[in-house]
């Protein structure tokens, strides 16, 4: 009971919020965070696409280890890793159960595992690349790849709104809890309590959306006044915006290292296939 209480005290909604904020804003000086955002995006596309061109499990395991190490170096939040682990473990249990129920053999299991590994590599790579990247850099990288300015602005604006939305959401859930009535008898496995809270979590979305929609009126006007629509047609403005994106020495080191490691994994897979 003591353990449960301590667990509750450390891991509550407030902790989730803090972890999310840390993921979004915290790690500007981590390994991947310091790299040129364009390079990181290219890295992400290559690493997440590579697995789909091979069935060689050595290469896949190699890639998996490589992405895991990169994400560890980038100090990704335990919350995100936890969520991913839950996802992967339940996927594996589900595969085992599926194969067992339908009397499949090793081959079926193996091919499903291969598929899971590919998905996992993709998700870990995306965590390593994006969780540590500054939202501004991400948005600028998108802009420099020729993505419309409206979209790249929306990305960084989303990050700006995230903490506000979280706060608002938390307050509205509180409103429901303060005035609603939680079931006194939880039932088997507390299903009534769980059902009660799940309902609140969903219902709280509507007031939050309506409140936010109301606020954006000022934002739209202010965007106009601050020349956002002007900048959409102005080449000079775009150039200024992207002027800080420059490849440095550490970016070249990263590039050479990545190519080296990927080649090594590839040759390892070619000569020692599982």
């Amino acid at each position: 009971m003591e353990l449960v209480n301590r667990f509750k005290k450390t891991y509550n909604l407030e902790w989730v919020k803090l972890e999310l904020l840390k993921t979004a804003f915290g790690k500007k000086d981590s390994y991947m965070g310091r790299k040129d955002p364009r390079l990181v995006m290219v890295w992400y596309f290559i690493v997440s696409l590579l697995p789909w061109f091979t069935f060689n499990q050595t290469i896949l395991i190699g890639l998996l280890v490589y992405t895991i190490v990169t994400s560890l170096v980038s100090r990704v939040s335990p919350l995100i890793i936890g969520l991913l682990t839950i996802g992967v473990i339940s996927e594996i249990i589900y595969i085992v159960a599926l194969v067992y129920l339908f009397g499949g053999e090793w081959a079926a299991f193996s091919s499903l595992i291969t598929f899971t590994m590919k998905i996992t590599i993709m998700s870990i790579a995306s965590i390593a690349a994006f969780a540590s990247m500054d939202p501004e850099k991400l948005s600028d990288a998108l802009l420099s790849f020729g993505v419309p300015a409206q979209f790249s602005f929306a990305v960084s604006y989303g990050y700006r709104m995230l903490p506000i939305l979280l706060d608002e959401y938390q307050q509205i859930i509180l409103s429901f809890r303060l005035r609603g009535k939680a079931p006194t008898n939880g039932g088997v496995l507390k299903w009534r309590t769980i059902y009660y809270y799940s309902k609140i979590v969903v219902k709280a979305f509507y007031p939050m959306m309506l409140n936010t929609a109301k606020k954006t009126r000022t934002t739209v006007e202010a965007l106009e006044v601050k020349g956002f629509s002007y900048s959409l047609h102005d080449k000079e403005a775009k150039k200024q915006k992207l002027s800080h994106l420059k490849l440095s020495n550490q970016d070249y080191t990263f590039l050479v290292m990545s190519i080296g490691i990927l080649l090594a994994i590839y040759f390892l897979g070619k000569y020692y296939p599982i």
């Binding site: 804003f25 939202p135 501004e136 960084s156 604006y157 990050y159 700006r160 506000i164 606020k215 954006t216 009126r217 000022t218 934002t219 202010a222 965007l223 601050k226």
Partner: peptide
């Protein structure tokens, strides 16, 4: 508050 649009 709604006039502030960038993260920092």
């Amino acid at each position: 508050e709604n006039q502030l649009m960038r993260p920092t």
